[in-house]
Design a binder for these strands. Sequence first.
DNA 1: GTCTATAGGCAGATAGAC
DNA 2: GTCTATCTGCCTATAGAC
Lengths: 200, 200
Amino acid sequence: MTKSSVQSDETAALILNAAERLVAVRGFNGFSYGDAAKELGLTRAALHYHFANKADLGEALITRYGDRFADALAAIDARESEAMAKLEAYAQLYLEVLREGRMCLCGMLAAENETLPPSMQDAVSRFFISNQSWLSSVLARGTELGTVELRGSPDETAWLVINTLEGAMLLARSLHEVAILQSSIDQLMAGLRRGTRVDV
Amino acid sequence: MTKSSVQSDETAALILNAAERLVAVRGFNGFSYGDAAKELGLTRAALHYHFANKADLGEALITRYGDRFADALAAIDARESEAMAKLEAYAQLYLEVLREGRMCLCGMLAAENETLPPSMQDAVSRFFISNQSWLSSVLARGTELGTVELRGSPDETAWLVINTLEGAMLLARSLHEVAILQSSIDQLMAGLRRGTRVDV
DNA sequence: GTCTATAGGCAGATAGAC
DNA sequence: GTCTATCTGCCTATAGAC
């Protein structure tokens, strides 16, 4: 790999960093090449060299975000063996993003779905389906082992977990109240943990 | 009231109708005066006559939406006396909006929060707090009467309900799968209804 | 790779005729 | 109340110099 191509990759990564934060905070439609260029001390033309158009940049954003999320899930699998511990770690990912004042990138893009290029819509869908699939496996395994108690199927419950976390993030961020997410996580986990339910 | 002022009110209402749908589908940043004007067969200048600037239009949108939601909650209170029935009816409001292919107006605006004029941010916050307050009362009353069983305080659980519904709407809409919301509603309700929990 | 310059379009907003 | 015309500014994107 030549020096210039390394620099190119590094610049591309810096652009993705800035763009990811801007999109997660302001939305794809509230973000422009000019915003990112300004932050990086570059011109808009330089950004177009690395990402020819906004749809390309958007796709790259989602792909990298999805890859990073997949890595995080693999790390959780390597670190935690018990289902509830995995779920707690999963929820912590959302809390960390919120504490940076961001939305989940794909949660933000889901809101803007109707205005996104189809390639980005598809990438967002894949992100959620991948998360749901991981969660569903964790929930199914936890049920087998008796640490998790479901009210619906693992698939349905997996969606409930994602929905609750994404929605709680949305509300917590707009109300400037992290506790809104924290408390929803606590209640969600209490509802899944076997042996914490109080009546019949 | 003169005929012309009636026409003005009617035109203003038509503008709000078109704008509300466009914003709930495309977002405030994905919406323009031109979009609404085109739908109504008017010019952008005509819209500026009724709503001088976009922030004014946005505030009017939220105010009217909040008033309509408050009316719907009052109708629920008049129609249903039991807490779980009220909660089911509340959830149905979200399902109806989703079936029209829309997001909750304020859920959409919550995502775009950081790019909104402060007056709109405040109005969105008030909307959610008003909903949370109503839900909290319903949950507290249901607990007293023994039809509802909470895992947290009524306040915390009220946020959980809103978060879950907003998040489920967000995901269901972007994945074109109404069942994602329906199933989250079912699980949420099952978790609140006394006597449906299966273990201790 | 990054720049300057620019094209071409659409945005929000206003002025003034009707 | 609604129109046409216009201002101003920002946007995405490209061409071509360095």
